[in-house]
């Protein structure tokens, strides 16, 4: 077992990431890169403004407006391209904040135990039992809705799941014989962390973070759907919110572009994230990868 683990990192280093991915993973990565590219190059890719009306209201997709226009006559393709910036930013920032924070808290509280653990668990309990949606409404009312507020609030509410699950894993790991043995032989905390805990925990944290990113994007869309997002941000969720609050949207043809394109963009990104997460999970946990 030890021997296997020793050889594995060598293979990992020798192969570029791309070749380690499965077909779906490659596709997912391509989609994500494409979206990121669209987000970055939005000003170059769009002929029309994403804020100001540039055509008739609710025009169907055409050569001039590849994705049609909304009820104010604003080009939807431009809105979606600029919206990618918001969604990707929210996803990445929240996942990073909550994933790293949650993992750190989980390891510390699981490994240290004692007072630190008790305090963390109480804090997690408090955060977990507070109904998040109303609290978000309150916070949004208090701080004013902005992308930063949404990222911070989402992160503040989503780190707990990662932390708890990682803590429970650390608690189990701590009981493993080889770790007890290593402790007996005088292994330092840092060594234990690096050699034994992190490799075991990384897959959980990575999957957790990828999921967090996806969920943060969905949560932002959900908040915007309720009309609590940043109204000036023009995120995908907000486009859908506007479309859905258009009365009788389902009985007209408008939803075929107004709702479907942002929905598609959102689903594509979120599913790609999940598929990529699967591959990363395989890469991160050598035993899963091989069996």
């Amino acid at each position: 077992m030890n021997g296997l683990e020793m050889t594995y990192p060598a293979t990992r280093r020798s192969l570029p990431l791309w070749h380690m991915l499965s077909g779906s993973g490659k596709l997912a990565l391509l989609i994500l890169l494409l979206m990121a590219g669209v987000a970055l190059a939005a000003p170059l890719l769009c002929r029309h403004s994403h804020r100001i009306a540039s055509g008739p209201a609710l025009a169907a997709p055409s050569l001039v407006h590849p994705m049609g226009t909304d009820e104010l006559g604003v080009d939807l393709w431009a809105q979606i391209a600029y919206g990618a910036r918001i969604s990707l930013l929210v996803g990445a920032a929240t996942a990073l904040l909550a994933g790293v924070g949650g993992a750190a808290v989980g390891i510390v509280s699981g490994y240290q135990g004692g007072l630190a653990d008790r305090l963390t668990m109480r804090l997690i309990d408090i955060l977990l039992v507070l109904p998040d949606l109303p609290v978000m409404i309150v916070l949004a009312a208090f701080f004013g809705p902005s992308v930063t507020t949404i990222i911070v609030v989402l992160a503040a509410f989503s780190w707990t799941a990662t932390a708890r699950i990682i803590r429970s894993r650390v608690l189990i790991l701590k009981e493993r014989r080889y770790i007890k043995a290593a402790e007996l032989y005088g292994a330092g905390t840092l060594y234990l962390l690096r050699r034994h805990f992190l490799p075991e925990i990384f897959p959980l944290a990575a999957v957790g973070m990828i999921r967090l990113a996806g969920r943060a994007i969905v949560a932002e869309a959900g908040l915007s759907f309720l009309g609590l997002g940043d109204p000036t941000s023009r995120s995908w969720g907000l486009i859908m919110h506007h479309a859905l609050s258009f009365k009788g949207i389902y009985y007209t043809d408008f939803w075929k572009w107004w709702l479907v394109f942002p929905w598609l963009a959102l689903t594509l990104v979120v599913t790609s994230l999940a598929l990529l997460g699967r591959d990363l999970e395989k890469l991160a946990d050598p035993r899963i990868g091989r069996s």
């Binding site: 996806g214 759907f225 689903t267 999940a274």
Partner: peptide
């Protein structure tokens, strides 16, 4: 199963609900 479940899991509940409402109920 895997991609299917991921896709289902990632569709926001409210949108899934609306979809079901429209296809199955309406």
């Amino acid at each position: 199963l895997y991609p299917l479940m991921i896709a289902v899991a990632e569709i926001p509940a409210f949108l899934l609900g609306l979809m079901l409402l429209f296809f199955l109920a309406a």
